[in-house]
């Protein structure tokens, strides 16, 4: 159900996310010092190529990683296979990407 390509995609995106998760935690701890406001967050992210790349990479990685992970669970625990399994994996990946991309877009450009 997982071939080498899906396996590599899932493990490489996990590798990519590990430092991003640590960065994300560090920013959260830094950002809540002295209270948290929308203006403060947007001040950091709006028009910033750095934060766009940071969270954009995160969204792409988690869409791929989560969709393949869900594929494993659905096959082993719910018996999904064949075209249905492929379709659900792609839907999950595209869904995660839309949700994430919308948020990254909003904090950068809106």
């Amino acid at each position: 159900m997982l071939n080498l390509r899906l396996y590599m995609l899932q493990r490489l995106t996990a590798l990519l996310m590990a430092p991003l998760v640590l960065g994300h935690l560090a920013v959260m701890i830094y950002a809540i010092q002295g209270g948290l406001s929308a203006a403060e967050i947007l001040g950091r992210t709006q028009g910033s190529a750095l934060w766009f790349t940071f969270y954009g990479t995160f969204v792409v990685a988690v869409s791929i990683h989560g969709a393949i992970g869900l594929r494993s669970i659905l096959h082993e625990w719910a018996g999904l296979k064949g075209a249905l399994l492929e379709a659900v994996m792609w839907l999950a990946g595209i869904g995660l990407f839309i949700l994430g991309a919308r948020a990254v877009w909003a904090v950068t450009f809106a």
Binding site: M1, L2, N3, L4, L6, Y7, S72
Partner: peptide
């Protein structure tokens, strides 16, 4: 060992 039933499962 790299196919659909391979070691990566």
């Amino acid at each position: 060992v790299s196919g659909v039933g391979g070691c990566h499962n």
